[in-house]
């Protein structure tokens, strides 16, 4: 290994995130040995699934220079309507239809975001605030507020899908949820798309400098349509997985999830000004947030502190990112 690549390794955000992740794990493990139990580790991995898929979507939007805070609303809308519909037709088929349905709902809603954004040149924050609120309000006012706990059989079967399952000597069961594979597949897919295809380059380009991207010949409007619809579709997938894993369809679910997810993506090195970020960084950011949230109790911090800790992590991470980007290129946008 020559010095150049060594330097690059140390400059990479992902490297530091990984170090931080390892140090944190060792610390938590040292304070409470229960951290290293298969049960705890598997449940941590399980918690990354939904946050991770959301984060992949938000990563795309942020790289393209936008922001999306409507995705939890879209996720809830998609899975709730899907479940309600499947229950009404007493669906017993494969898991494919629920996933496709929820994904399509999400994609359509994402498309609405994109159309509003690009047709009227509106600020993404305001648009997604508006659509999120409208969709949540619509769902609860006109579709229903009741929590559905009798999910269709395919969704229950899906929640039981495990890659690894073992009954321990004391009778407790440890299992590794198969849904984690979906996160993995999506992550690899998006990584390849971003690094190896013109589409991905285009998304980086419009986030980095929209005018330049236009001059080079990227179709900015079409790229934006793709990004927001794709994010919506991911929200739909994350939603149906979430609903299946907790075996409840609750229309008041996932409120405030946007904070955590945006925190994870920004922690992962994506810059709000666009054009920067990586899938690996995003996943590490998610891992860090999940680790911090899941380990507070293990190290003896009451769960009341969760919000404060997440907030402090977000501020520290964004502060460091802002400081570093100012050092590397003077004159970044405030």
């Amino acid at each position: 290994m020559n010095t150049l690549s060594k330097n690059r390794l140390f400059q990479r955000n992902e490297f530091w995130l990984l170090c931080l992740l390892i140090v944190l794990s060792l610390t938590v493990g040292a304070v409470n040995g229960a951290f290293w139990s298969a049960n705890n580790l598997f449940s941590l991995f399980k918690s990354t699934i939904v946050t991770g898929i959301f984060a992949l979507g938000v990563f795309l939007v942020i790289v393209s220079g936008g922001i999306d805070i409507s995705f939890p609303a879209f996720a809830v809308f998609s899975f709730y309507i899907t479940v309600k519909f499947l229950l009404s037709i007493k669906y017993t088929g494969t898991i494919l239809l629920p996933f496709l349905m929820s994904m399509t709902f999400g994609a359509c809603l994402g498309l609405v975001n994109a159309l509003l954004l690009s047709s009227f040149q509106l600020a993404p924050l305001i648009v997604t605030l508006g659509t999120g609120s409208a969709v949540t309000g619509f769902l609860r006012a006109f579709v229903g507020t009741a929590t559905l706990s009798n999910l269709p059989q395919p969704l229950i079967d899906f929640s039981r899908w495990n890659i690894y399952k073992k009954t321990l000597a004391d009778g407790s069961i440890v299992s590794f949820s198969g849904a984690f594979l979906i996160l993995l597949v999506l992550a690899i897919l998006i990584h390849v798309m971003m690094k190896r295809t013109t589409l991905g380059r285009g998304i980086y380009a419009i986030g980095g400098d929209e005018v330049a991207a236009k001059r080079v010949g990227f179709n900015v409007k079409r790229l934006r349509l793709f990004v927001y619809s794709f994010t919506g579709a991911l929200a739909g997938i994350a939603g149906i997985i979430h609903c299946s894993l907790i075996r409840l369809a609750n229309p008041r679910d996932l409120e405030g999830a946007e904070m955590e997810v945006i925190a994870a993506v920004v922690l992962g090195g994506a810059s709000l000004t666009g054009g920067k970020g990586s899938v690996a960084g995003t996943l590490l950011g998610v891992a860090l947030i999940v680790l911090i949230k899941g380990s507070l109790i293990l190290v003896g911090v009451p769960s009341d502190w969760q919000k404060v800790v997440i907030g402090l992590v977000l501020i520290t991470a964004t502060g460091l990112t802002a400081w570093r980007s100012r050092r590397s290129d003077e004159g970044g946008r405030a």
């Binding site: 945006i262 000004t273 402090l312 501020i315 964004t318 100012r326």
Partner: peptide
């Protein structure tokens, strides 16, 4: 120089 949306989100 943290973007206002992130700073106040935190």
């Amino acid at each position: 120089h943290i973007p206002p949306i992130l700073a106040t989100l935190g």
